[in-house]
Simulated assay, not measured.
Amino acid sequence: MKFIDLRSDTVTEPTDRMRTAMAEALVGDDVYEDDPTIKLLEEYTAKLTGKEAALFTPSGTFANQLALFTHCNRGEEVILPHDCHIVAHEVGGASVIAGVQLRAIESVNGKMDIDKVKKAIRYVDDIHYPETGLICIENAYSDGTVLSLDYMKELHMVAKEAGLKVHMDGARLFNAALSMKEEVSEVLKYVDSAMFCLSKGLCAPVGSMLVGDEEFIKKARKKRKLMGGGMRQAGILGAAGLIALKEMRLRLVEDHENAKYMAEELSKIQGIEVLKDNLDINMVFFNITDNRLKGKMTQEAFLKEGIKINPEEDNMMRFVCHYYISKSDIDTVINFIHRLRRY
């Protein structure tokens, strides 16, 4: 049975082109840096992002935690938005792996107040305080919004003046760049390192990339091995990653347009309130204000109709558009919700 899967853009399966490329990939032992396909992927990534070097990692969480582990010394503090992915959804990895503590600053749509960031920076000259080791941002943010280039530039200046680096969780980097109408290399000018996922909306089955300068990536490569991320014939995965970057990122505009269409249609349903300020990328967030409808919009009810959704989180629902969600799929979902409301 074919499901309409709105849970996330992580559910995308490899395309036929990817499957063929994976089967035919030239491979070697990547721990020895002998895998030609991974080398091509890393070189292409560095060129695309405007960074000196890149490193293939198993996942976005892995790449974020590797960045903290590489940038920071144990006992240092990382400044970042209070509800970003590193804080909320990475299993407390920062304390376990890098041995750092997180200085979570209250934010709105991932945007920390610049003055609060300045005040949060702590230096080594006071024996009572941990020293600040890094500032992190997330763009696009997990609530469907995008930070502006002006904001990123201002934050980077603050970090630079304090002698700090900025790392960006760019899991959906290409969605952010599309929304900003900027080249990816321009977006990454104002961060020292960044990660992005190949498996979120780009259809690659596994993997994320970490980018930065050559010294940073050299250190990260060794720490990747320590964390168990040194893979052998990884070119099978790298082949899919190359297609993700060369082809699939160029079609993300369709997902953004579909998300806006879905938001418009959901807004027409009485009892549903769409968060229209959170529509920068391929996600639609909404509240169900009608308790009768809310009681009917369960995972079980949708699943019976061949639709997969996630339950409410913090009284909010999220539908995500991706390569395998068409406009007709959206119409099917909308019609089903209309039927739920009617009966």
Rank of each mutant, 00 (worst) to 15 (best):
R103A: 05
K111S: 10
H128R: 09
G163K: 07
I135C: 09
D150N: 14
V117W: 09
M157K: 12
A120P: 08
M180V: 02
L164T: 12
D125A: 06
F174Y: 14
N175I: 06
L134W: 04
D115R: 01
L164F: 03
G170E: 04
L134R: 08
T132D: 09
R103D: 01
I121Q: 00
E161M: 12
K111M: 12
R103C: 01
Y151L: 09
K165S: 15
E131Y: 01
D113E: 13
D125H: 12
G163F: 07
G133N: 11
C136Q: 13
A171D: 10
H167V: 14
K160I: 03
A104V: 02
E131R: 11
V108L: 06
F174A: 13
E138Q: 15
G144N: 05
E154A: 14
A176Q: 07
V124L: 03
N139G: 00
M180R: 14
G170N: 05
N139C: 13
K119L: 08
Y129V: 03
A171S: 15
R122H: 08
K181D: 14
I127D: 13
V124H: 03
T132L: 12
I135H: 10
S148I: 11
A120G: 05
C136H: 05
N139V: 11
L178E: 07
A120Q: 02
I114L: 10
N175K: 03
I105L: 04
D113W: 08
A159D: 04
R172W: 04
D150H: 12
I137R: 10
A104I: 01
V166H: 11
I121D: 00
E138S: 07
M112K: 05
F174M: 10
A140K: 07
D143Q: 07
